[in-house]
């Protein structure tokens, strides 16, 4: 109080600028690095298109294959995920739900090479060798679904958890049974999240490499005919194959950009649908 008159309100800025300058530099460098990654891809892709170093037919076919396989995986995994999420949150007893949640979270970290390994084992043990020519989208989608299922489930569990208890309470107070509450209160509340999870699942499956690559090699070893049908030629596979062939095939960048666009498209669609309307409710 007594010093109030002596101390001027106007004091010059303290020496606090240094950390901010450092932060700014770090941020600028990092963001530029990330931008460089994108620029590298786009530059390569544009070059490929300009110099006509791009096999349009192959690229489009690969993209189509990728999409079909990924969509298949999402279609297989999604119903399972929805049922699991609802079971974990609404039906299972708390301790069981907790255990299941931990298991699901753990499963979602399983590397795709391991899924591919399982796929190979299945191929060799449960299908006769002659039938390998029937290695179809369905088989690959099945294993991709295995890979995508835990992450979709844990995503949905989190969304179901966010539904306010008041919603369920309201349903129960109107005399609804548990089952009716799930069907008429819980399920409609996560409808858009289910669609979002579907998109995110496709986005995740579309870029998978190891599973398909391993299945491809396993199939090729047994019957080359299965591979020549090029049904498994997805974008990531095409990228890996081309990378082995030549030092600088430009088409590879075009494929990568296409893959990036697909992945970005699906993940951003998923994220925009994932908006949570429950802010601030109990």
């Amino acid at each position: 109080m007594e010093s109030a008159k002596e101390k001027p309100a106007v004091t010059y800025l303290k020496f606090t600028v240094l950390p901010e300058v450092i932060l700014q530099l770090v941020a600028a460098a990092t963001l530029m690095m990330l931008a460089a990654v994108v620029v590298l891809m786009i530059k390569g892709a544009v070059n490929a298109v300009i110099t006509r170093n791009l096999d349009f037919g192959l690229t489009l076919a690969a993209a189509l294959n990728s999409l079909l396989i990924a969509a298949g995986a999402a279609v297989i995994a999604l119903p399972l995920s929805v049922v699991s999420a609802i079971y974990i949150n609404e039906l299972a007893r708390p301790r069981l739900a907790e255990a299941l949640w931990i298991v699901i979270r753990g499963l979602s970290a399983i590397p795709s090479v391991v899924i591919g390994f399982i796929g190979i084992l299945w191929l060799l043990h449960h299908s006769r060798l002659q039938e390998l020519s029937s290695l179809t989208f369905f088989h690959v989608s099945l294993f991709l679904a295995l890979m995508v299922y835990p992450s979709l489930t844990s995503l949905l569990v989190e969304q179901v958890r966010r539904i306010p208890t008041s919603l369920r309470a309201a349903s129960y107070s109107l005399g609804a049974s548990r089952w009716q509450t799930i069907v008429y209160a819980v399920y409609p509340a996560i409808k858009s999240c289910i669609a979002a999870a579907g998109f995110l699942g496709v986005g995740k499956a579309v870029g998978d490499t190891a599973v398909i690559l391993l299945l491809w090699h396993a199939a090729a070893k047994v019957s080359p005919a299965a591979v020549h049908s090029s049904r498994l030629l997805t974008l990531p596979i095409a990228i890996v194959m081309e990378a082995k062939l030549d030092r600088q095939p430009l088409g590879i960048y075009a494929m990568a950009v296409l893959l990036m666009i697909l992945s970005l498209l699906f993940s951003s669609m998923g994220r925009s649908l994932m908006r949570c309307p429950w802010r601030g409710q109990e």
Binding site: M41, G207, T209, L235, P236, I239, A256, L259
Partner: peptide
Amino acid sequence: EMPPVVYGL
């Protein structure tokens, strides 16, 4: 969230 192949590239 990009596919890992892209980073491989």
